[in-house]
Simulated scan of single mutants.
Amino acid sequence: MKNRLIRHIPLLLLMAALACKKDNTAPTATSALTIVNSVVGSAGLVTNFDSRTTLKYYSTAQQIGYGSFQEFGSYTGNVPLALSDISDTTHTVYDNPLNLPLHSISTLFLTGTLASPESFLTTDNLPYHLAADSSLSVRFANISPGSNPMSVNIQGSADGSEVASLAYKSVTAFKNYSAKGNINSYTFEFHDATTGNLIASYTMNGINDGVVNTNQNRFRWKNFTIALYDIPGNQHVLLINNY
């Protein structure tokens, strides 16, 4: 028994050295991509980050529901991407490579209809919020196919006071808004810029909900996109977290 232990001492010493060796491997850098599904008629989009391979249908596939979004953080460079609706994975709604530079933040908006899908990609320059500023930022998107240009205002202010005219498949720059203790909510209104008719509104409630910790407060020091989607007569508003 003693001789057997002696023979294994070199191996045990090597294993101990490897276990104690400091791991100097640096984390792998990547980019961030948000995909928004506003394709009218979609039952849910399934992603395929290897567009050379045809998707196989399976009912439990992870989906980006209609009027929702999903974030991805594992891809960079020239990324092959195809998306299919869960109702028919033999056909693609989108099939194009994306150029996602290292450290970049991008949003892919899918819109149009299943019969005639459309898309556009934005590179997002997110504002940095100093803790002392107590602010948040918002940008606006029109992803409502067939819509007139939209104006945007804060409820109670003149039409177009935030955005005078926002055409279909357009996105504004981010704008900072106060999130100080006296601000509880903002209600943003989308009006048809041609007729002046109110189309839809979105209220950001709970901007000051008593939570000071930035990791728990839903709005303070963060960035959002407020998007108008769906066809005229049935339009809705989606809040997208850009963080």
Rank of each mutant, 00 (worst) to 15 (best):
G77F: 10
N78V: 11
N78W: 11
V79N: 12
L81N: 01
L81P: 00
L83F: 06
L83Q: 04
L83V: 04
L83W: 05
S84W: 10
S84Q: 11
I86C: 04
T90K: 13
T90V: 07
T92P: 03
T92R: 15
Y94L: 08
Y94I: 08
Y94T: 08
D95G: 08
D95I: 08
D95E: 12
N96Q: 13
N96C: 07
N96V: 07
N96H: 13
P97I: 03
P97S: 06
P97V: 05
L98R: 00
N99C: 04
N99V: 05
N99M: 09
L100H: 04
L100W: 03
P101F: 13
P101I: 12
P101M: 10
H103D: 10
S104A: 03
S104K: 00
S104C: 01
I105E: 05
I105P: 03
I105T: 15
S106R: 01
F109C: 09
F109R: 06
F109S: 07
L110G: 05
T111S: 03
T111Q: 01
G112E: 01
G112W: 02
G112S: 03
T113E: 11
L114M: 09
L114H: 03
A115R: 10
A115D: 13
A115E: 14
S116R: 06
S116F: 05
P117V: 02
P117M: 03
P117T: 01
S119Q: 15
F120R: 08
L121A: 00
L121C: 00
L121E: 01
L121I: 02
T122Q: 00
T122R: 02
T123G: 03
T123V: 08
T123E: 05
N125V: 13
N125C: 07
L126E: 12
P127Y: 05
P127M: 03
Y128C: 08
Y128A: 13
Y128R: 13
H129C: 08
L130E: 11
L130M: 07
A131Q: 10
A131Y: 12
D133C: 07
D133K: 12
D133H: 09
D133V: 08
